[in-house]
């Protein structure tokens, strides 16, 4: 660090650093707070387009961090939506060792590198923090008259292969869930998957009766609930608090039908230990803030704070699980 200070010829970065160090001291934090602080704006890379689920979460984090003045430098969201996340992950690979870039992920973090044989996957990056696990529900249109899972299975079979399921993208979360459903209920080949661009559009197409069912996240279905969309069952181990009356698949005798979308933060590989500690502290504050608690309960997400070695283990498990799912669909070979 001394080296970099010497190299910097302009006074401003020096002053910022001095000032932020001063603040740390002034606050009287007894804990050994990380010695590293961002000295440049932090690139907050989002592996999806503007306005999507990941984008919303990233901008919410930006809001919470800004309002609480937790970072001496701004978080600047940058959308890199190309190639179902490939563009964003390759970008992080190219920023190896740079502590001023972080990535907010979805599950294409696991599926895209496997499917596209990218030179990057979770092991090439630094896991920082997991903030939430988004949940999934099976939805139908209220006009369909379907009230429970038995009705659903009957209705799918009655349509003789013409049943449609809308979802976001191809070979991503929604299609994996659809495939899990088909396997569990012996509906293989009876459901046609229709890919759309975003969860909001998927929900609209169900509400408008253009597809027969969806596996939307709760927040995507809420605008049409309870008027036009009806949740049938949840892909969670416990009932979702916001949808108390909706059974889980586990209760319905299909305990393997559990699926989450992780919302986590990753940094490029090889960043300084101090920087990792600073980010961990930052997102720990965020995850335990009232704003985050409030948002996650309103949107029926599971707040799930995790960091350090357990997070690495979680990623490894998820990676194996996703590879298995993809192999089960015949999309991936050993």
């Amino acid at each position: 660090m001394m080296k970099s200070l010497k190299a910097s010829r302009r006074a401003i970065p020096f002053l910022t650093l001095a000032l932020s160090l001063f603040i740390v001291v002034a606050l009287g934090t007894t804990q050994a707070l990380a010695a590293w602080k961002p000295t440049r704006p932090i690139e907050f890379v989002i592996m999806a387009g503007k306005g999507g689920g990941a984008d919303r979460i990233a901008r919410l984090m930006q809001k919470i961090v800004t309002q609480n003045k937790w970072s001496p430098q701004p978080l600047v969201p940058i959308n890199k939506k190309g190639g179902s996340g490939a563009e964003a992950m390759l970008y992080l690979l190219s920023k190896k060792g740079n502590p001023h870039v972080i990535l907010v992920t979805l599950n294409s973090f696991f599926t895209t590198p496997a499917l596209r044989k990218l030179p990057v996957n979770y092991t090439k990056l630094t896991p920082v923090y997991r903030l939430a696990m988004d949940t999934f529900l099976l939805w139908v249109n209220t006009k369909s008259g379907i009230k429970n899972i038995d009705d659903f299975v009957k209705a799918v079979k009655a349509k003789k292969g013409k049943w449609t399921m809308g979802g976001t993208g191809k070979m991503q979360e929604d299609q994996l869930v659809t495939n899990m459903l088909m396997q569990a209920y012996g509906l293989k080949g009876m459901i046609t998957y229709v890919p759309f661009r975003g969860g909001g559009t998927v929900a609209k197409n169900l509400a408008g009766g253009h597809v027969d069912s969806t596996v939307n996240n709760p927040s995507e279905g809420l605008p049409h609930y309870p008027g036009k969309m009806r949740p049938i069952a949840a892909l969670t181990p416990e009932r979702i608090p916001a949808f108390k009356e909706v059974p889980t698949f586990k209760e319905l005798g299909q305990p393997q039908l559990v699926y989450f979308m992780q919302r986590s933060i990753n940094a490029p590989g090889g960043i300084p230990k101090d920087a990792l500690a600073w980010y961990t502290d930052l997102f720990n504050k965020l995850c335990n803030s009232n704003e985050w608690k409030d948002y996650t309960s309103k949107k029926a997400l599971n707040r799930a704070c995790l960091s350090g070695a357990p997070l690495g283990k979680f990623f490894a498990n998820e990676d194996t699980k996703h590879k298995k799912l993809l192999m089960g669909m015949g999309l991936l070979k050993n």
Binding site: K50, G51, G200, K204
Partner: peptide, 14 residues
């Protein structure tokens, strides 16, 4: 409906 009619409203929706 909670769906954007244009790219700008997508950001506003966020």
């Amino acid at each position: 409906l909670g769906i954007p009619g244009s790219p700008t409203t997508a950001v506003m929706l966020g």
